[in-house]
């Protein structure tokens, strides 16, 4: 599964430092990471650098990854759960070029997983690091646009307003109408944005054996959840947190408890559901698992997305 870095594209020789950032900057970022690990959920301001990718496209996650990656590491990059989305491909290629590290699509084989919007379905293990790309690190931002005031609210643990927004949801919709970026309390102290992962993935953050790092490039913040830390999704006693559920299973691999993408097959309402975690789904199919629509579905899917689906 693991691929060696393509030597032809390497820019390490062309005057750029290993993993692009200079060592001084990496040290500064690692100090911030250490601080973040020491105070779980607290947003540490850091001297974010301009990266050769646009802000909002993963510059924070890339700076974190660049600062911790070494030659012995194996990198997996996903976007929306998939390894082959353009942005994931682009970031993986960036590190293959600048750090010459091997890359992989297999979650278990990766020492560092950089992600946007998902946590892999395969449980993470001790020794692994997952790096989240963060567009907006401040969970209170939508309620309070002032940075100074937000920092006070965190410092004094004044989170009543966040709870009010959940109250408003229930009063209006009968349930908490937040389906992603669902706010969490870390270590019973700091309110934290889990980044725009679906709330389906929130429970994976709790008591996770892997180190979880979060980098926000544009907003210049780093935060962290150390291994085996309590991460609780906000809720009410009588409206407990619940994750998304689907009435269907994955049409390709038959998985019952994964986050599913909806694939539109035609303009007459025809659709099917497939695992958003592309590697997880492939592995299951390789192991012989089949979805309810099985071969037909696989072909329809292949036709719709132009992807290769290996024959059973």
């Amino acid at each position: 599964m693991t691929r060696a870095a393509p030597q032809s594209e390497s820019v390490v020789e062309a005057g750029y430092n290993f993993a692009y950032l200079d060592e001084q900057t990496k040290r500064m970022i690692r100090r911030c990471i250490l601080k973040a690990v020491a105070v779980p959920g607290y947003q540490v301001p850091f001297g974010g650098r301009e990266m050769p990718l646009p802000y909002g496209w993963g510059t924070g996650g890339m700076q974190v990854t660049a600062s911790i990656i070494g030659r012995a590491d194996t990198l997996k990059v996903i976007d929306q759960g998939a390894d082959d989305t353009t942005n994931a491909v682009n970031i993986r290629r960036f590190f293959a070029r600048t750090a010459e590290v091997p890359t992989t699509e297999a979650t278990a084989e990766a020492s560092i997983v950089q992600t946007r919007h998902r946590v892999p379905e395969d449980p993470l293990a001790e020794g692994q690091i997952i790096v989240y790309q963060v567009p907006q690190p401040e969970p209170l931002r939508a309620l309070e646009p002032r940075e100074v005031e937000c920092r006070k609210m965190h410092a004094y643990k004044e989170y009543g307003l966040m709870q009010v927004s959940l109250y408003e949801d229930i009063a209006r919709f009968g349930e908490i109408a937040t389906s992603y970026s669902y706010p969490v309390m870390v270590n019973d102290r700091y309110l934290m944005s889990p980044t725009p992962i679906p709330k389906f993935d929130n429970p994976k953050m709790d008591d996770c054996p892997a180190l979880q790092l979060f980098g926000a490039g544009r907003e210049k913040r780093i935060y962290a959840v150390p291994p085996y830390t309590r991460v609780k999704s906000l809720d009410f006693d009588d409206h407990p947190f619940a994750i998304q559920q689907w009435e269907e299973d994955c049409a390709l691999c038959g998985a019952e408890e994964t986050f599913l993408d909806e694939v539109i097959l035609d303009d007459k309402g025809g659709k099917m559901y497939v695992c958003s975690d592309s590697h997880f789904c492939e592995r299951r199919r390789a192991e012989g698992h089949r979805g309810r629509l099985s071969e037909g579905a696989a072909k329809a899917y292949a036709a719709a997305v132009g992807a290769d689906v290996e024959e059973a």
Binding site: P54, Q80, T85, R218
Partner: peptide
């Protein structure tokens, strides 16, 4: 404008996991 342009244009990146979550909701 480097920050602003990046963040406005990041809306071009796939958001289908979030969109799927909203669809469901």
């Amino acid at each position: 404008n480097v920050e602003a342009s990046g963040f406005v244009q990041h809306l071009k990146l796939p958001h289908y996991v979030d969109f799927q979550s909203e669809l469901q909701l």
